[in-house]
Simulated scan of single mutants.
Amino acid sequence: MKIISNPHELNDYVKNLNKTIGFIPTMGALHEGHISLIKEARKNNEFVVVSIFVNPTQFSKDEDLDKYPRKDEADKKICELSGVDVLFFPNANDIYTKDEVSLQAPNVRGYVLEGYTRPTHFNGVLTVVNKLLNIVNPTRAYFGKKDAQQLNLISLMVKQLFMNVEIVAVDTKRDSDGLALSSRNIYLSKDERKQALAIPTSLNLASSMISKGIKDTKEIKEKMLEHLKLLEVFYVEILDREFNQVKEVELGNSIILVEARVGETRLLDNIWL
């Protein structure tokens, strides 16, 4: 496995490959969810690139940039064992300058749900993903469905900016207790982790209601919120896959999304129906 930190060096390196490239952008602290993305990329491409970059522009001043988990040596070993060909490991000065061109998230979709409580977040996400895609120039880029709003906005950016890359959505990986895998899970105490299980069980409750023929989104949301009452809930929403409000669940075109805080840890989860 080759490790590269300079964007121009990586861009020159992949330019001469003449191979299909699968790309997985990450912020490190890799877990089984990331490994599943790497496996998907490995399966469908001749060459695999992973980036590890904790992107400062998607954190607001009062968020946990300095505390965000970093496991550089472990991450390198995971990438090597997973068959990654190139690990891109830049620092902030490699990616950003003092006078930046940046992308603006769409006025509606970028400022609802997670974007409502973190209004600058998706500007930073779209800017850095755009930069990374331009550096790597992959055939396909892989993102987890757990971050559904991020996935939707990145797909929108690629479509609207006529970018020549296929965005591949990969199913959420869960721990044995049902909690969606996240780098932030390490922040949870033992008791907080037990409390956090209300999130996936609320989604299971919704799925059970839908399987019994209940499609009314208001009724489903009320039951979920009752189940989540001990947590600090930012939102429970049921939307179509273009992130429009719907009154009834449409199988094959709906997502149920939850964001809640457990202790000091913000957790996201969802199910695609």
Results as ranks from 00 to 15, higher is better:
F89I: 11
W272V: 12
I52F: 12
S208E: 13
R140Q: 05
R174F: 04
T120R: 07
Y142F: 03
N91F: 14
I186P: 02
K215C: 12
D177Q: 07
A148I: 02
N44D: 04
G83H: 14
T120I: 04
K145N: 10
D62Q: 11
R42N: 12
S211E: 05
Y235F: 04
N123Y: 04
W272S: 08
D85H: 08
A260R: 04
F89D: 11
D216Q: 08
Q160K: 15
K98A: 07
D171A: 12
T20A: 04
L161D: 01
F89L: 13
V236P: 02
K61C: 04
V112H: 00
V48C: 13
F243W: 14
S82D: 08
A196I: 13
G263C: 03
V48R: 06
A180S: 09
L153R: 09
Q104S: 15
R241E: 13
I35R: 13
Y187R: 07
L251V: 06
N18P: 13
N134E: 06
N18Y: 10
R266H: 01
N134P: 02
Y96K: 00
N93V: 10
L133Q: 09
D72F: 15
L37Q: 08
L87K: 10
K43M: 12
R174P: 03
H31V: 01
K77T: 03
E219K: 15
L126R: 09
M1T: 01
Q150W: 08
R118H: 02
N91I: 14
D269T: 05
P200G: 06
S202I: 01
K159V: 01
I35H: 11
Q150H: 01
R42F: 11
S183N: 06
V86T: 09
K229Q: 14
T57I: 03
L273N: 00
F122S: 00
L267P: 08
L87D: 00
N45G: 10
V48L: 12
I238C: 12
V262W: 09
Q150V: 00
E232G: 11
E32N: 11
M224C: 04
L179P: 05
L156Y: 14
E226R: 07
A41Y: 07
P119V: 01
S5K: 12
